[in-house]
């Protein structure tokens, strides 16, 4: 009796050990993939890295040299546009959710919809903006690209603003309101100020998210082989150039694609690590 129960206990212990080892293996597997992907990007990317990357334009096929200057600039402009459009809308919509719609159906609905937009397939956004902007204006353009990115940018900002504002203790709201200060002033001067780090990191996180987006730009910004600052024209951008060059048979183009991929990945990862660490500290996790 006693011996059988200890053997049962041993078996259970062994089972537990096996299961937990499998968990360790799963984690190792995840890490292996992470390292593998980053290693691949690093390996190919570093080899192709050169100063010409940011001083020269995307070359025509079969010509040596060249860089990605126009694509970097284009991406920068479109991300900037998305931030300019998206930040006020995102922050204010987040404010609405956290401050003006508590417990209301409308607020709940918007929060629900926002969370769905957060994970909605980004190619759908591309289709939508093509119909919304490209067809009516009759032109692929940097504007269309920037607006498509804004559609992805806004939900991230809404979500973090909403969460960060809700972390501000009610005591602060009540104290300020009891002094007879108008609500909008309370929101701007007290709430935004105390949640500013959180909101800002939310914006950084959103920038990281849109910087690597390819699908929404395919039918909106198209691409451009020249340097262009004209937002009404088709615009070069890093993700689409990477996509085109990576799939090309020309070695020079493939090298540029890897270099672009490396720079983009490094930028996105550093940005998201930094903002996440801010966010976690703020969230008190």
């Amino acid at each position: 009796m006693a011996s059988s129960s200890t053997s049962l206990y041993r078996r259970r212990q062994l089972g537990s050990l096996i299961a937990l080892t499998l968990c360790g293996i799963a984690t190792a597997l995840g890490l292996v993939f992470l390292i593998w992907i980053i290693w691949t990007t690093l390996l190919h990317g570093l080899a192709a890295l050169s100063p010409a990357l940011i001083t020269e334009m995307t070359p025509p096929p079969g010509e040596d040299g060249g860089g990605l200057a126009n694509a970097f600039m284009g991406s920068l402009l479109m991300v900037f546009l998305a931030v300019v459009i998206g930040t006020p809308i995102g922050v204010l919509a987040g404010t609405f959710l956290s401050e003006f719609s508590r417990g209301k159906k409308l607020g709940e609905t918007i929060r629900f919809v926002n969370d769905i937009l957060l994970s909605a397939p980004s190619i759908i956004i591309g289709l939508f903006v093509y119909e919304l902007i490209v067809r009516p204006t009759g032109r692929f353009s940097g504007f269309a690209g920037g607006i498509a990115l804004a559609f992805i940018f806004v939900p991230v900002v809404v979500r973090t603003t909403d969460e960060m504002l809700r972390l501000v203790p009610d005591v602060m709201r009540e104290a300020a309101l009891s002094l007879g200060i108008p609500r909008w002033k309370v929101t701007v001067n007290v709430l935004y100020r105390s949640a500013s780090t959180g909101i800002l990191t939310g914006i950084l996180l959103a920038i990281a998210r849109i910087s690597g987006e390819t699908a929404p730009l395919l039918f909106t910004a198209l691409n451009n082989q020249y340097w262009s600052l004209d937002m009404t024209q088709p615009m070069a951008n890093i993700p689409v150039v990477i996509f085109q060059f990576a799939m090309s048979p020309y070695e020079q183009w493939q090298n540029l694609a890897w270099a672009g991929a490396f720079v983009m990945t490094a930028f996105v990862l550093i940005l998201s690590v930094v903002s996440r660490s801010f966010l976690n500290r703020k969230g008190g996790k």
């Binding site: 032109r139 262009s228 009404t232 024209q233």
Partner: peptide, 10 residues
């Protein structure tokens, strides 16, 4: 905006 810059020969 689009009307304004239509003159560019791109």
């Amino acid at each position: 905006v689009f009307a304004m810059s239509a003159s560019a020969a791109d």
